[in-house]
Each structure stands twice: as C-alpha cells, then as structure tokens.
Write a protein that binds this DNA or RNA. Structure first.
Length: 602
RNA sequence: GGACUCGUAGCAUAAUUGGAUAGUGCACUAGAUUACGGAUCUGGAGGUUGGGGGUUCGAAUCCCUUCGAGUUCACCA
C-alpha cells in the first residue's frame, strides 16, 4: 500500500518532480551515483524555504558530512534551476526557497482547472467495491452505524475522486433468529398495529418489538430459574424463545404465512432505513440480501473440498486448517449441513466478483471482526482467487461515549435519527441566536440548518483516523467552535459573500506580487490532488478532513489581515478574489468527499 | 491463557509512514471590531509521546520487556 517514502514524489507535486530530476542529475555529476533515495519533505515553518531535501540518505555516496553535502547540492541547484531562488542548510536538511513567480504560475494553473483535485475515471480504470452499512433488520441504526455509514460513503467518494470506478454495496442481514424475535413479539403483543396506526418510523416500530421480546424472554427465564432451573437451560427452554426458533424453521421451510409476515415487517424496516439513509446522505449501487446469499456458501464448500483446501470430519462438518498460518482451525459447514457466517461471506465475495469483476474490495466493518476478515481473505487466497490480496478490511474503532460504553440493554444507545435531529435543531438555535438569516425563506433556512447540523456531525466523525477508537461527546460535537465542520463552512460562506459583493468576473492578471501568506496558501492548494490520492490509498477520510481544516485556518488568518475587495490595485483585487474563490472551491470539494455540504451564507 | 489493536498536555486529537524544537482544537488566560461576515483573528501557559531497555546519524513511529485499556478466540451473526 505504501509505495513510496515521500509524499511529494509519490504524488507528483510539480516542484518535487522538477527537483527530483535535477537532483538525480546533480548526484550523478557530483558523486557519479545513480538511483539514490531522494527524500523531500515540507519545510518546517520555523525555517525559511518551501521544500526540503533530506540529505542523510545521500551521505553514503557523497562521503562527506551532512552540511557539506547539502551545501554542494544547494549550490548546484541554485545555479542550474531557475525555480530555486535560494537555499539554506540546517544540519542534514537542505531547505530550498522556490521563486515567487513559480508559485504564482502554479496558482494560475490550478485556478483554471475545473473540479481541481478530482480525476474522472477512465474507461480502463479499475473498479473498487466498497461495502458499508450492512445493517440487521431488527432494530434502528445507532451511533456506531453512523460512523460506519459515513466512513464507507466518504471512502467510496474519495476513491471515485482519485480516478477509479466505485460501486457501493451492502449486505442486509434480513433473516435469522433476530428477525424472528421481532416477528414473534409482534404477533403476540402487537394486536395488529402498524407503523401507520401508531405513527412510529418503521425501523423503530420493529425495534420496539425486538425489545418487547427481550423483556418477556427475560421474565420467562427468571420464572424458570425461580422454579429451580439452571440459567443456561432456562435460556433454552423459555417458551417464547422456542417459539422464535420454531418460526425460523418455518421460515426456512418457506411457509407462506411466515414469509408474508417476514416480508411485511422487513418492509417497515426498509421504509425507516430509507429515511435515515436519505438524511445521512448515503446511497448504494447494489444491495445484497442475506436471505439470498446464505445459500451461496454451499457451492463454496464443494469447491474447497475439491481443491483439497477444506476437509470433512467424521460427523460431516467441514473445516479448514489454518494452523500453518498461525491461526486456528475454522469451521466452514456445520455437521447438520447448514452454513456459517464465514461460508456466506466467501460465497458473497465470489458472487460480487462475478457481478462486478472488481479489482479491489473494501469491507467497512468494526474492528471486533478483525480476525474474521483475516481468515476470510486468507481462505479466498487459498481457494485461488487472485483478487483476494486486494481485499481490505476497513476496520474502524468503536465509538465511545463520555458515559462509557454504548449498551442497548442499559438504554445508553444513541439513536441515529435522534442524534441527527438534535444536531440540526442545535444548528437552528445557534443560527437564530446569531440572527444572520433575515430575509431567508423558511425553506432555505431549514435546508441551511440541515447542512450545518449534519456537516458538524459528519466532520466530527470523519476527522478521526478510522482505525482509532473515538470518543463521541454529544455536547462537544454540537459546540460549533474549534476544529469543526461549521468552522469550515463559515469560511466558505464568507468567501461566497465576497464573490456576491464583487459581482463581476475575475480576470487573473499576468503577474502580481504575492505575499508570503499567499504563497503559503498556494502551496497548500497545490497539495490537494495529492491528498486525495493519499486518502484513497489509505482509505482515510481523516486526511481530507485535516487537510481542509489546515487550509481554512490559513485562509482565515489571511482574510483577517489582508484586504481583498479593498486591495490597492485592480490586479490585486482580481488575484486575491481569485485565490479566495479557489480556496472556496477546494473547501467545497473536500467537504463533498466527506459527504458534507457547504452553505452560501450562514 | 493464546492472538490482535491501542496508550501523545486536564480533555479531544495531528505528526509527510524512521526526520529538524512533537503540531492543532476545547477548556484556562491576555488582547484585537470607525474592516470584505467576530460562528473570526493575535499572544500566553500547559509534554520525560504509559514505564524501562535496544536498533541508528535520527524513534511517538521499528525490536524486546513491563504496566494499563479494549477486541477476539462458539457447529453465534
């Protein structure tokens, strides 16, 4: 995955490309050395310069001290390349100062590029599958699912922007004992009520009966234990549980009445999910349903046995031995002939490859399944699928609450719909307090609250490295200060305000004297395409989030201290406004990659 | 017990995948508006990167060890 050591050459930033070539020539001329490791990095802000060559790796061939080597290379570059205006040496670091004209020209190039940073996929580009969401249909989605959905969606958009084809998929766990529990409870206690008759959102409605089941189940267990039965036995013997098990058998036997009930209840859930997905702003190219895929595993077993990758035990169960890979033996097929989760996943993966002939596939699933995916990919590899090595588990950490762990039994679950509503209504309250929205229609204002509230939520969840466990503090996420989505949106809104005020086309001058701060911003803009590539190969929206945050911080400082519309010459006004608009554009693109919108005013 | 992940300031998080004096936000503190939008900006204070050892020009990052947290090891999904 990491194919290079330095971001500049890897991602083809223009100046690094030029320098890389020249330094190769230079090393050849000075030390007659070829193919050396040329490492660039951003110049730390305490030193003068735009880009820094790390000379330590070159000492081997220069056979001189770090300072002396750096000086020699610096002299060479300054003389040979017009872009290198000056240089300084600090220990083993050669800080190169690039001419201002270069940066200005650089900016003009990015300025005229539409949809800057985004690469459209060519016909021949590889296809990536991104699986995310994949809910159970027995309860509404909660905070943990939100991280999953936002991550999956954003990663898919980022990969798309990096020039690959992307298909978003999910597998809906629409069958099994958990759904039967809701079904039993609804039959027994529901008295025929529906989401329509009681006004609940479909998924919440079905979730209610899942909880009802659990309550009643616990009561029955307690009763049996009081009569002297042992806890484990009571869990198995509770009548309502047996009823659910019986229902699962009926379902597998395709009994029409049960199938009809199952379809009805799942239908309610999907109606509810649709609303949640829509508000979250996520979508899918194809849904897989476990009720279709759970049988796929059988074929896999045959293939595996044929190839000798699996083996059958005396009782008829089928296994794979992964002990030579440092893992355990893993069951593939139960002795009663039914498949397990793993078997289905293998089957589904193969099915998907037939459907899309993807080159890469990412699974957005929590890190409690790290082991599962390790095994899955290994098995696919052993079965001889060459795409197995391009499968990636986009493993993300749990979302913690300040109060501790989210536990459905203790009622500490943060419901997705409630949370979104809370974010949006808080955005509304803040906007009203600030009173900046006069003259806006109710419709526009509501759309704005949605953009701001959801933007805050999305940015908050995505700015953290996916791999890491994160803490979600509802209060802090709604406080729109600091490193937040609203901070970024606000910068965007102010830029749009400038554009409205100026109200004529920006004509980029041929040349203009740029300030140090402007040069910094241009440099930052220049890195954007590289950041998208980096985020795509690392499956990390956090890189995009951090990038845009840094850009906004720089721009805000600039905005605060530099007149734009009141600049002293027309050329300057045009340039500065052009620079601002481009920053605005990049903000918009970056936020779009995070699934978040930006408002023209707020 | 085995396997895996993580530990950075009071809290939340970065660090170009081994590079310079470890950045940023919140909270705390002192300031800035006759200005293109103050949901902003400029300062200050706050660190033995859990502890100890090692590898090397150079370690938050790699190795060993120890402490702490979490996940996982079902003919569950």
């Amino acid at each position: 995955m990491h194919d290079g050591r330095d971001i500049f050459t890897k991602t083809k930033i223009m100046i690094a490309k030029i320098l890389h070539k020249e330094i190769e020539k230079c090393l050849s001329a000075l030390y007659s050395a070829e193919g050396q490791d040329i490492q660039f990095q951003k110049t730390t802000k305490d030193f003068k310069g735009d880009i820094t060559l790390v000379v330590f790796p070159i000492l081997r061939v220069s056979k001189k001290g770090p300072e002396q080597t750096a000086e020699q290379i610096g002299d060479y570059l300054k003389e040979k390349i017009s872009e290198v205006a000056d240089f300084n040496v600090v220990k083993g670091f050669l800080n190169l100062e690039i001419a201002k004209e270069f940066w200005y020209n650089q900016f003009v190039n990015t300025y005229i590029t539409t949809d800057y940073g985004v690469i459209d996929a060519e016909e021949s580009a590889p296809t990536y599958l991104v699986e995310y969401s994949s809910p159970n249909t027995n309860k509404p989605i909660h905070l943990g699912h939100i991280r999953n959905n936002l991550l999956g969606y954003s990663v898919a958009e980022i990969i798309k922007a990096s020039g690959r084809h992307v298909k978003k998929v999910q597998v809906i766990n629409d069958r099994g004992i958990h759904i039967c529990k809701s079904m039993v409870a609804w039959e027994d206690f529901g008295h025929g009520e529906t989401p329509e008759t009681n006004g609940l959102k479909g998924d919440h409605f079905v979730g209610k009966y899942y909880i009802e089941f659990d309550k009643y189940y616990k009561k029955e267990i307690a009763g049996l234990v009081a009569e002297g039965m042992d806890q484990k036995e009571a869990e198995k013997q509770a009548p309502i549980f047996k009823k659910a098990q019986a229902m699962l058998l009926s379902w597998e036997a395709k009994e029409p009445v049960i199938i009809a009930l199952w379809k009805k209840m799942n239908g309610w859930v999907y109606d509810g999910f649709d609303i949640t997905y829509k508000r979250l702003g996520v979508d899918f190219d194809k849904n897989y349903y476990e009720s279709d895929t759970y049988l796929l595993g059988k074929k896999v077993v045959e293939i595996g046995l044929e190839k000798g990758v699996f083996y059958r035990k005396e009782d008829g169960s089928v296994w794979i031995d992964l002990s030579t890979d440092g893992l355990d033996e893993k069951i593939i097929l139960r002795s009663d002939g039914t498949s397990v989760y793993m078997t289905q996943d293998i089957g589904t993966a193969i099915q998907r490859h037939e459907d899309f002939s993807f080159s890469n596939m990412a699974y957005t699933v929590g890190n409690e399944q790290d082991y599962h995916f390790k095994v899955l990919f290994l098995i696919l590899d052993k079965l001889g699928y060459d795409w197995a090595k391009n499968c990636y588990h986009l493993s993300y950490g749990m979302v913690d609450l300040p109060s501790g762990k989210m536990k459905s039994r203790e009622g500490t679950v943060v419901d997705a719909d409630e949370l979104m509503e809370e974010m949006v209504s808080t955005a509304k309250n803040i906007a009203k307090d600030l009173g900046k929205l006069e003259g806006m229609t109710d419709e526009a204002a509501n759309a704005l609250y949605e953009t701001v509230g959801m933007g805050a939520l999305k940015y908050f969840m995505l700015k953290v490295d996916p791999k890491k466990r994160m803490l979600f503090d509802p209060a802090e996420s709604i406080d729109f200060n600091g490193n937040t989505g609203s901070f970024i949106q606000y910068a965007y809104a102010r830029i749009q305000s400038l554009v409205r005020k100026h109200n004529t086309e920006v004509l980029m001058p041929n040349e203009v004297e740029i300030t140090t701060k402007e040069q910094e911003i241009i440099k930052h803009l220049t890195a954007f395409p590289a950041v998208i590539q980096e985020a795509a190969t690392n499956y990390s929206p956090a890189l995009v989030a951090n990038y845009v945050y840094d850009l906004v911080k720089e721009f805000n400082t600039y905005y605060q201290h530099t007149p734009i519309l009141n600049a002293e010459s027309n050329d300057l006004i045009n340039f500065r406004l052009g620079l601002s608009t481009k920053v605005g554009e990049v903000i918009k693109t970056a936020m779009r990659l995070l699934g978040a919108g930006v408002p023209d005013r707020m």
